[in-house]
Amino acid sequence: MTTSAAASSGRWRLRQPSVIPGFGLTLGFSLAYLTLIILIPLAGLVWRSAGLSGAEFLAILSDQRTLNALKVSFGTAFIAALVNVVFGVIVAWVIVRYEFPGRRIVDAIVDLPFALPTAVAGISLAALYAPNGWIGQVLNLFGIKAAFNPTGIVIALIFIGLPFVVRTVQPIMEEIDREVEEAAATLGAGRFQTISRILLPGLSPAILTGFALAFARGVGEYGSVIFIAGNIPYVSEIAPLLIVIRLEEFNYGAAAAIATIMLGLSFAMLLFINLVQAWNRRRYGHGA
């Protein structure tokens, strides 16, 4: 353990004094490991795309195929996150509020997308929603094609994103004080009014956070998408797949540039989530 920083008493301390040993060892190891595994490789990525001239970077960015891939990734992730907000809130509500046999199993199954490998989900969804699959056949009757086009991507991203919404909203729902609802009811509010005017506004920061998490995950998702997407350039080709394609062409510069743009957008999302949570804590006294 190092006490040097703390011992140099006075104004600035790296840490508060403590009798517990191991600060230097554990922090030193953590920082070294973090730097080696995460920070240096990520810095290498930024370094590589910084090595491109502004004109090269712009050329990659303004390439129609890149633009379309980014549009497909962000567009489908946005739609899937919206769908997940609607159904995720309903699922969370049913789990939190209603008593029914098998409630715990339903609760546990929500985490399936966290546990099931993405490639497994991908081939299974492709088999189900393909024109000759169980669900695909039914949808075909209505003239809906749900696989090998952007709709297929949305379906895969709904699967991937659902637990993010449910698990963000659920704990906040559990904390709702029933007295507030009783008060609203005694004051003459209908059940619909109570939900839309009292409950949903209180839940909205959590819903927004869940949306952002599902959206961010959807943008970067690869394994579950590529089997059902059809991967048609300009139409149903996602940005992560385009990175893989550029890598296979040994076009490392383009791969790094697309990755950097995606990372930049992801960090903007992360910042946004943190701001929402900070705002939420100030307003409601608890985080999402």
Partner: peptide, 29 residues
């Protein structure tokens, strides 16, 4: 177990890989 400067930042850095696309996690190497 300790209070030190930059703790919140370190915690954020640890979560970083969750917000990186898997493909990018491979690409960096």
């Amino acid at each position: 177990k300790f209070e030190f400067k930059g703790k919140a930042f370190l915690t954020t850095l640890i979560d970083l890989p969750f917000s990186v696309s898997p493909v990018i996690s491979g690409l960096v190497y």
